[in-house]
Design a protein around this nucleic acid. Structure first.
Lengths: 94, 94
DNA sequence: TAAACAAGTTTATAATATAAACCAAATTTT
DNA sequence: AAAATTTGGTTTATATTATAAACTTGTTTA
């Protein structure tokens, strides 16, 4: 039978965020917002969920005087993403 | 930027149903229920949504004395699935 | 110094998924 | 043959989720 899909990753915006973070060392809030086209509110909420699940690490600081929220994928996040993709393949016949 | 994912297909159960229907001529309610592990209520609702969107065709009839709900993917459904998979690939880096 | 902007967060709302409760007909059990 | 159970679903209620709108705090800019 088909494996269940990790509900944390089976969400358009969260999946987009993880997908971007997989490919880079780190990315900040502004960059993620631009790349995903999400609203700030939505992005903020989803980043929080990923962070609380331990899928990403969030570091809030300043660059000059501007606040900056830097996101980085964790090993846990990487593993979860890999598993999600594997499970998903059975759904999309790959 | 990432393409939006068809919300009708970006749902675990509906995706599972379509995924199964892609591979067969037709499948009935009981078979889909068994293959997906879904509850009757959930499956009923999701079949309805796919049907109303024109992604599948549903034929309710009897086989002998037992009711049978037969589902079949449509061309529209096939196309939507294909597009969904293409869009999804950008999310899972394929 | 007031208005506009940047970078977020919090809260409210609308949509969604899901299961629980229900129903009618057929079958099985006692 | 009446009662209980099963089959094949549908309808309704609930809990979760995604999302946007409203708000906050500090910073430029006019």
């Amino acid at each position: 039978m088909l494996k269940p899909l990790d509900p944390l990753l089976h969400s358009e915006l969260r999946l987009a965020v993880i997908s971007i973070l997989i490919g880079v060392e780190a990315a900040d809030f502004v960059y993620l917002k631009e790349r995903t086209g999400a609203t700030s509110g939505n992005l903020s909420v989803q980043i929080d969920k990923l962070s609380k699940a331990g899928y990403i690490e969030v570091e809030k600081g300043f660059v000059g005087r501007k606040p900056r929220t830097l996101c980085k994928i964790t090993e846990i996040g990487r593993a979860a993403f890999k598993e999600y993709v594997e499970a998903l393949k059975d759904y999309i016949n790959m």
